[in-house]
Design a protein around this nucleic acid. Structure first.
Length: 949
RNA sequence: AGGACUAUAGCUCAGUUGGUUAGAGCGCUACCUUGACAUGGUAGAGGUCGGCAGUUCGAAUCUGCCUAGUCCUACCA
């Protein structure tokens, strides 16, 4: 073994070895256990969120594989419609100065495929670096041929089942990307704006209660007045009740529009009068539907004012009209039009006032532009009928959320779900399988030929729908689409439903909910009942930076998991964080921050340390502040394991470690560590079973560091270095050293695959194992009768003595190099027996010169005192210890004891406590009181003794 | 507006059904190169568990209210 732990040197080769030997391939035997990876964007790169989730998944898969399940971890990537298309558009623009329209659809798509081929390997390479044991042989892509078939099949079935429809509806329109987007892709944030109060003149000489011949409407979007088709008031609003049914003469436009009553209107807000523009606002649209209002669209695809408005009835049917838009606004961008209209109203004296007002601006999450509600022809999924079974599946436990609280979020959304707009006016994606004839009638089918045959269309002209499907439509099929659906393949029969989905809460709606709906509708068990996509949803938190801020490129606080693994120089880190920025003006600040946080770049911590850290932080499913201190500590933990293994091998390689079956004699320490190992196995197993990766990590850390390394390795030395030790004793200790190490490695393997494999390969012959890889070995099990309570109690006695001495040494500043004589006084017979049995442990670990048992009645010299139960452990002060220092130490100890005694007494003198608390609790308190009192008395005597001189 | 979550040591976090002397890692202090390990060892300091009230013999843990923060959903034109 190399002298020092170097993750880089060991991690490279093992992954390749595992993959080449097909260890990731499902074994085909044992009970199936399957996970699908949430497909990352094919052109993306791995971020901390991926690293986190993939670590969790790999830990589960490795655990189950070692538990002899038939494990499938399905891998693949997503085509990520908008994101990828935008990226390639930018690239083409930068490199060739062309837009996608310059290229045309086919050529542009060629470019996207080229880019996919070029960069698609990036993310899979990174997955390999993380140690993800996915089945590469089954790697899929959401736009591969199989998915093409699956998506078509899904669309057609949903259409035929009446769950997909096409219609002219108000949708979120992105004026930059020129596509509809779903509600979920719109993010609303508070922005400063204004509320314009505009006078709308009453027609036909009507007046308000106070004699005005106009009413005032308040709006945040004055420019949409061009499409107003009503003004609404609350039916019970006394100010305006009498005007309901009257008309407004729309300023600048001259259109006569009715005043209607609708209790949607909030009397308190603004003036209590609302202008209604059904074609440009979702609430107005709904009101228009209720009141049969005409819809007048005044905006084009760029959100600029049309020359001629489009007028529709409530069904979305275009109607003949003579509406016009004042020439002054035609062709103006929506904001320019707003300025013009406001100025013109002001000129007419019809602008009452302008108030400051914060509003939620709805922005497209990709383009960042304020989206525009726009009337367009789109395809929709009727979600209500799909949502019902999907809700039921979670209610009745067929699907379980971990942590459970996410169910609420899921239910809340599913019970109020809106129809899903699935068509996108993009080029990169699954083209909608619908064909139109010249009259605009559409036919849904698998291909043009299929459609012709199916609908008996003969030789008429057909053209396919130009639009593609929302990316989430195809990823909604991920669990079964990847396994060969619509064919009922062996894989589907065996591995579907999958066992657990590991994902972030941010895509519960985008993906998880839709996956459940689509899967339950399309996938059936043999008895015809719905299949769920997965039985458990483990929801992870978000990884944030050390300040709790979201990691983002524009903030320059992104940590790249690969940098944590491999390390990175300050220069490279700066280049990475400030290069190729969307907002170059931020570069300077980021540069400064980065220099401050990472003056020397980042150290290489290795994959195992990163994975272990991510596991140890994976507690409640809440967000995680990623603290570099943790990964550094865990790198040191890896180093610790490495050095411990080095010690074990040094003492056991080429030695008889009992692997040949010869008799062994186990020391107390041997029996103790074996017992502790069992308890650790129990803890780790139950932690992993309940998705508490943090508890599993903690149990491993504390066992390996604080028990195996800190105590057991030290306790092995007195045996191994004892010239008089018998072969049985030597064998016993060597056997325990290697067995416990080997078990601990297997126990830790799912979390830290590389270092455990590297060391295991060297240790395996010493425990008589011949398997090719630790990842194929059996996972340790908990065996209750291997817990040795007596050994644990006895060793605690040994530890107490040693710690008592160390405490005196530390507090009294006695050099660790100085061997000291030790006296035992007032002990029981059992203490004496323990002393004799463990003399060598005490001498070695407490660095003692001598150990003397004082018989009862024999006076001890003036000493510093430590207590182990009732027994006094004495370090004679002569020449070693300063009297005042010992007095101070004793006084501190006494103060602590007296505090405890007071508390115990308080409790026990409370009759209510004694009467009501369970007897065993009361007894325990009494016992603790007695112990504390005895200890205090002893220390008090010591104090008196010292003070007497 | 509705909902969820969080508040424990200087920092990042554990603390299962109410009963511990409230724990870990990092950081801090002192001492130490002792034959696995200075990416180390030993010892130590540090917390009235956000606040107030309640339930209980007993509350970090249960209930209510309050404060601070994070997030989600829906929105006022």
């Amino acid at each position: 073994m190399d002298k020092t732990y170097n993750p880089h040197a060991i991690e490279q080769q093992w992954y390749q070895h595992w993959e080449e030997n097909s260890y990731f391939t499902p074994s085909g035997t044992g009970s199936p256990y399957s996970i699908v990876i949430p497909p990352p964007n094919v052109t993306g790169s791995l971020h901390m969120g991926h690293a986190f989730q993939d670590t969790i998944m790999d830990t589960l898969i490795r655990l189950k594989r070692m538990q002899q399940h038939d494990t499938l971890w399905q891998v693949g990537t997503d085509h990520a419609g908008i994101a990828t298309q935008m990226l390639v558009e930018r690239k083409v623009q930068a490199e060739e100065g062309l837009t996608r329209h310059d290229l045309g659809r086919d050529k542009f798509l060629d470019k996207v495929w080229e880019w996919k081929e070029e960069s698609g390997g990036n993310i899979t390479r990174q997955l390999r670096r993380l140690g993800a044991s996915v089945d590469w042989d089954r790697e899929r892509f959401t736009m591969d041929d199989g998915f093409y078939t699956a998506v078509q099949e899904a669309f057609i079935r949903l259409y035929e089942d009446g769950l997909i429809y096409r219609g002219k509806r108000l949708v979120n329109w992105d004026p930059k990307l020129h596509t509809a987007i779903s509600d979920l892709e719109v993010v609303s944030e508070d922005e400063a704006g204004h509320l314009w109060h505009m006078r709308y003149p009453l027609a036909d000489g009507a007046t308000t209660a106070n004699g005005d011949n106009y009413i005032v409407v308040a709006t945040t979007r004055p420019e949409t007045m061009l499409g107003d088709t009503a003004v609404a008031v609350h039916p019970e609003d006394e100010r305006y009740q009498h005007l309901v049914g009257q008309f407004i003469e729309l300023p600048l436009v001259g259109r006569r529009i009715p005043i209607i009553a609708d209790d949607y209107v909030d009397q308190e807000f603004g003036t209590g009068c609302v202008k209604i523009t059904p074609a440009h606002d979702f609430n107005d649209y709904a009101m228009g539907q209720r009141h049969g209002l005409t819809m007048i669209n005044v905006l084009d695809q760029d959100a600029a004012i049309l020359a001629t408005p489009e007028v529709y009835n409530t069904e979305g049917k275009s109607i003949e009209h003579s509406e016009t838009i004042p020439a002054a606004y035609q062709g103006l961008d929506r904001y320019a039009a707003r300025d013009g209209i406001v100025a013109d109203l002001q000129g007419l004296g019809q602008l009452e006032k302008i108030e400051d007002h914060t509003l939620k601006a709805p922005r497209g999450d990709r383009s960042g532009l304020v989206i525009e509600p726009l009337l367009t022809d789109q395809w929709f999924v009727s979600t209500k009928p799909l949502a019902e079974p999907a809700i039921a599946a979670v209610e009745d436990g067929r699907i379980e959320f971990v942590p459970k609280q996410w169910e609420n979020t899921y239910f809340a959304w599913m019970r109020d779900i809106q129809d899903w707009c699935i068509s996108r006016q993009l080029w990169w994606g699954h083209r909608i399988p619908a064909w139109y004839d010249d009259a605009g009638k559409f036919y849904v089918g698998r291909s043009e030929a299929d459609v012709r045959a199916k609908y008996n269309l003969g030789d008429i002209n057909l053209r396919q729908d130009e639009d593609v499907l929302d990316t989430w439509f195809s990823s909604g099929l991920w669990t079964f689409g990847t396994m060969g659906w619509p064919d009922m393949t062996e894989a589907l029969k065996r591995y579907h439903p999958t066992d657990v989905l590991v994902t972030g809460f941010d895509i519960i709606f985008f993906w998880v909910a839709r996956m459940i709906m689509m899967t339950m509708h399309l996938m059936k068990h043999e008895d015809g009942s719905d299949q769920v996509p997965f039985k458990t949803i483990y929801v992870t938190g978000l990884i944030r930076d050390e300040n709790g801020d979201k990691m983002s490129k524009s903030k320059g606080n992104v940590l790249d998991p690969l940098d944590l693994i491999d390390g990175i120089s300050l220069e490279d880190l700066l280049a990475k964080r400030t290069g190729n920025m969307m907002q170059p003006q931020l570069a300077k600040k980021i540069d400064k921050q980065t220099r401050k946080h990472f003056p020397e770049g980042m150290a290489a911590y290795g994959t195992d340390a990163l994975r272990f850290t991510l596991c140890s932080l994976a507690s409640t499913g809440r967000d995680i502040k990623f603290d570099l201190g943790r990964i550094e500590g865990n790198r040191n933990f890896c180093n610790k394991i490495w050095n411990a293994a080095s010690y074990v091998l040094m003492n056991c390689e080429d030695q008889d470690c009992g692997q040949h079956g010869d008799a062994v004699e186990l020391s107390l320490a041997d029996r103790w560590i074996l017992s502790r190992l069992q308890r650790t196995q129990q803890k780790v197993l139950s932690a992993l079973d309940s998705y508490r990766f943090d508890h599993a990590a903690e149990a491993l850390y504390s066992f390996i560091c604080n028990e195996y390394c800190a105590w057991y390795l030290e306790l092995s030395k007195p045996v191994l270095w004892d010239d008089n030790a018998s072969p049985e004793q030597l064998r016993g200790t060597r056997q325990t050293l290697v067995q416990v190490l080997e078990s601990a490695l297997r126990l830790a393997h799912p979390l830290m695959p590389y270092i455990t494999e590297e060391i295991w390969q060297k240790v395996k012959p010493l425990v008589g194992k011949t398997g090719p890889s630790i990842m194929l070995e059996a996972y340790p099990e908990f065996t209750a009768d291997m817990v040795d309570e007596q050994a644990e109690a006895d060793l605690n006695w040994v530890r107490d003595v040693i710690e008592g001495v160390r405490n005196i040494r530390g507090e009294m500043n006695i050099s660790p190099a100085k061997p000291i004589p030790l006296l035992f006084s007032k002990g029981q017979e059992s203490d004496q027996a323990k002393l004799e049995a463990n003399r060598s442990f005490l001498i070695k670990l407490a660095k003692l010169e001598s150990v003397t048992w004082l018989p009862a009645g024999e006076e001890a010299p003036l000493s510093a005192t430590a207590l182990v139960g009732q027994m006094e452990v004495l370090v004679p002060m002569a020449g070693l210890i300063d009297k005042d220092a010992e007095l101070a130490r004793l006084t501190k100890e006494l103060a602590k004891l007296n505090g405890e005694i007071k508390r115990f007494n308080g409790k026990l003198s409370n009759a209510k406590f004694v009467d009501n608390a369970p007897a065993e609790v009361v007894d325990k308190e009494r016992e603790k009181l007695a112990e504390a009192e005895a200890a205090a008395a002893t220390l008090q005597q010591q104090v008196a003794k010292i003070e007497a001189i």
